[in-house]
C-alpha cells in the first residue's frame, strides 16, 4: 500500500505517542543538543507532556536546503478527502551540504511517505524520516532519516542492520543517513515492524 504514494492519497495516517520518559538515558543529551542548534521548534505536546509522531503519504511540492532550516513541503490528502500541505523542517543547509545533501536529494513530484514530529504550528513540523518511493513498484526506494533517529539510536541501528546505505550521505557526522530499500526489504520491514512506517518509529 505504501508503495502507492504517487497517488497522493494518504493511505495511512497515524499519531503515535513518543514516550519521552522512556528515553531518559538520552534525554539530557537531546535537550542540550536541541539547545545547541538553532531550533526554534516547539513540539506539539499531549496534555501529558508527550510528543507525537505522525506518518502519512503524499508527494513533494518543493524541497530546498536552507539556513537555519532546510524545508520540504508535502501535499497530502486527508482521510475525509480534502487536500492539505505540510511544511517540514530539516537541519541547516551548512550541515546538510556537508553531509552530502543537495536541493536535488528530493525532487518535486516525488511520491513519499513521511514520519513527522508536529509542532504547535498547524501543518508544520520536523522531518523524522522520508521514504522516497521508486518510479515503479519494483524500483528501489530511498529512506532518508533525520530528527529523532540520527546518531546511534535504536532505530538507526535497526535500519543499519537491515538495509544497505545509498552512499550519498557522509554518515561520519552521525546525523542523517540514506538507505536503499528494495520492494522485498520494504515488505520485510513492514512485516517485522507493523503499522504505517513502523520501521522508523520508536
Amino acid at each position: 500500500m505504501h508503495r502507492n504514494g504517487q497517488t497522493r492519497k494518504r493511505s495511512a495516517r497515524t499519531a503515535i505517542v513518543q514516550l519521552v520518559f522512556a528515553l531518559l538515558p538520552v534525554l539530557s543529551l537531546f535537550r542540550l543538543e536541541s539547545a545547541g542548534a538553532h531550533h526554534s521548534f516547539a513540539p506539539l505536546l499531549l496534555p501529558s507532556g508527550e510528543q507525537t509522531i505522525e506518518t502519512f503519504d503524499g508527494s513533494v511540492r518543493v524541497f530546498r536546503i536552507l539556513n537555519p532550516h532546510s524545508a520540504i513541503i508535502i501535499d497530502t490528502v486527508t482521510e475525509d478527502g480534502s487536500e492539505e500541505s505540510w511544511l517540514l523542517e530539516l537541519s541547516p543547509r551548512a550541515q546538510l551540504a556537508r553531509e552530502g545533501w543537495t536541493d536535488e536529494t528530493v525532487s518535486s513530484g516525488d511520491p513519499v511517505s513521511v514520519a513527522v514530529i508536529p509542532s504547535r504550528t498547524p501543518n508544520r513540523g520536523r522531518l523524522r524520516a522520508i521514504l522516497v518511493h521508486g518510479d515503479t513498484p519494483a524500483a528501489d526506494a530511498q529512506l532518508l532519516v533525520a530528527y529523532g533517529i540520527r546518531g546511534n539510536t535504536p532505530v538507526m541501528q535497526r535500519l543499519r542492520e537491515r538495509l544497505p546505505v545509498c552512499g550519498t550521505i557522509d554518515a561520519s557526522y552521525n546525523r542523517t543517513e540514506c538507505f536503499t530499500v528494495s520492494s522485498q526489504a520494504l515488505a520485510d520491514l513492514e512485516a517485522e515492524f507493523p503499522g504505517h512506517m513502523g520501521y522508523v518509529l520508536p
Binding site: 536552507l66 539556513n67 532550516h69 511544511l87 523542517e89 541547516p92 504550528t121 498547524p122 501543518n123
Partner: peptide, 16 residues
C-alpha cells in the same frame, strides 16, 4: 557561510 532564509512566523492557530 550562513545565508539565512526565514520560513515565516510560527503561529499556534494558523498553518503556513
Amino acid at each position: 557561510p550562513w545565508e539565512c532564509v526565514s520560513l515565516g512566523t510560527r503561529d499556534d492557530s494558523e498553518p503556513p
